[in-house]
Amino acid sequence: MSSRLSPHALMQISAYLDGQLSAREMSETAHKIQTDPQYRQAFEELKRTRLVLRNTPRRKPPRNYYLTPQMVKQRIRQPVMVRQFGFASAFAAIALVLILLGDFASNLSFGAMAPSAMMADQAASESVAAESAPLTESMPVTQETKPPEVIYWGTQTAPDTMAPAPDSALGGMGGGGGGDAAGTTGAAPLSTPSTAEESNRTGAVIPTATLQSLGNFTTSSDASNGNPILGIAPSDQQGEPLTQTLSVIEEDTSDRPSIDWLPIIEISLAVIMIVSAILSIAFRRRL
């Protein structure tokens, strides 16, 4: 046995057997084989081993391996399916990640903006309510004693004084081309402009108190029935908060089912990704 020889020495002897060394290495190895018994023994053992392997009986092929046109044209289907499912899974994963990132980024930006916007709306509502509060306190007597008045929009012959005249039509408020005195009527003409202007300026929702005061400016011959086009409430409902219109709007919005497609898309992509990956692995293992 040649166990004391290094692997490099054994490799040199093996290559020497096949003549795969340089001329200098061949001469060095030949000299060691002649002089060193271990080298010689290893050389003899490897030489005999190679002789045994070279005498391995050869097998005759059981058939010819000619290729036919049908064999060449035949497509390998499973690898194609493996590839397709793999691509589908990868695309679904990428799309899902992109959507999640986009959703996350939009939530971040919306979250930064939302507090300031909410605070502005709240401040505007509070300011409008504070300004209209004195007005509502001064109104009850008028509401109870005088019927509502009709406002004729755009009338140019409005009287200078806005004293209540139950049976007469009075000049309208504002309107196109009204005279100098045209514009306001009602019991509390001086306080309404500031409220209206404030509402327009802030863009806030007109509070209930303002709607009450505006309702007092309207008079009509059919005041008892009201006028839905002009927003005039019936006489028995005047002075009450105008919640009907708002409730109708709320009902309309609540009746419609609002579908958020984003979670549906995300779930669908996740399902596609998982199923495609499973199918790809299954086909790959079947190969």
Binding site: P7, L10, M11, I13, S14, A15, Q20, E45, L46, R48, T49, R50, V52, L53
Partner: peptide, 23 residues
């Protein structure tokens, strides 16, 4: 290739010694 061949031959040598009577 040289290294693998040398190691393979050594393993084959050791293995075939167990079949000396059959060779």
């Amino acid at each position: 290739v040289k290294s693998r061949l040398s190691r393979a031959r050594l393993r084959m040598r050791d293995c075939l010694q167990g079949f000396t009577e059959l060779l």
